[in-house]
């Protein structure tokens, strides 16, 4: 199938990255070291605006680190490449191409495989994501969930070594989102390629992850890596298990602490946010 035999890993070594504009300079990442393990689904979670997208951009090669190194299989990342493909936050399907043409885009642009082969694989992938009936529709004619599936197919046809998911299910309604998560799980379990999934929603993170990386506020780094040792293949029934709840409580505490730091930094509130946090802490003992 579309699975690649070769499994790659991505390593961040002491990465620092700033954003520089005319008036405002911020340090987004500082001393950030992390490890996206080969053949695993790593989930990056953190408070909003903490630089998760920057991590994705650095791995994809759209940005360069100001300090430190981003390594893929020991080689520094030098620029965008189809070995590392991003599924963007808002859809990045080309609006002037049909669903089918969008999926065909990668192979035909590179001329890596013959047109017939590309066509065959496109049809197979469209079938797999359930869009074969919609192959001649333009992206604007598809629903949010369909757009995401088309985008997944567009990435998978290139047989990437690393898939980078930048909050791909954001903005979908709750039901579609759940379906897409399960869908994505099936796809991952089938292909088994290295995945980095960025999200700000905890349930989603735990249900998907092999490993959960919790990030701090800006300048951010990985605060803690939590191993999610839930059995695979998974589905939403796992949310009732004891282990799930343990992991959730642990991660929640970390996130809550970061979120409060963030809100204290950005403005005062009259509501005592700390109270809930203390309760959570005592409950865990």
């Amino acid at each position: 199938m579309v699975a690649t035999n070769q499994k790659s890993e991505v390593v961040f070594k002491d990465v620092a990255k700033g954003a520089y504009s005319k008036k405002l300079h911020t340090v987004i990442l500082k001393d950030c070291s992390l490890n996206v393990e080969a053949g695993k689904l790593t989930v990056l979670i953190g408070p909003s605006g903490c630089g998760k997208t920057t991590v994705i951009n650095l791995i994809a090669g759209y940005e360069r680190p100001d300090h430190g190194e981003v390594l893929m299989d020991g080689q520094p990342v030098s620029g965008p490449n189809w070995e590392r493909l991003v599924v963007f936050q808002e859809t990045a399907l080309f609006p002037w191409l049909t669903c089918y043409e969008n999926v065909m885009f990668g192979p035909t642009a590179r001329k890596s495989i013959s047109r017939e082969e590309a066509h065959r694989e496109t049809m197979m992938l469209l079938n797999k994501v359930g869009l074969s009936e919609f192959r001649d529709k333009y992206p604007v004619q598809l629903s949010g969930g369909m757009q995401r599936r088309a985008e997944l197919a567009r990435a998978l046809i290139n047989k990437p070594k690393v898939m980078l998911m930048d909050e791909p299910f954001r903005g979908l309604d709750a039901m579609t989102r759940k379906l897409m998560q399960e869908y994505y799980l099936r796809l991952f379990e089938e292909t088994g390629c290295t995945n980095l999934f960025v999200t700000s929603e905890l349930e989603e993170a735990i249900i998907l992850a092999d490993k959960l990386l919790v990030m701090t506020n800006k300048p951010s780094k990985v605060r803690k890596a939590i191993d999610v040792d839930l059995p695979r293949p998974r589905d939403w029934s796992i949310a009732t298990s004891e282990r799930y709840r343990e992991i959730k409580a642990e991660a929640l505490e970390l996130l809550h602490a970061e979120a409060i730091k963030g809100s204290v930094a950005s403005g005062k509130t009259e509501i005592d946010l700390k109270a809930g946090f203390e309760k959570l802490k005592t409950a865990r003992g």
Partner: peptide
């Protein structure tokens, strides 16, 4: 043009001219 579109194309191996 939305920056995501050329970025995605870059990842798929589209060069500067194309």
């Amino acid at each position: 043009v939305d920056i995501c579109l050329p970025r995605a194309a870059m990842s798929f191996g589209v060069g500067k001219k194309l």
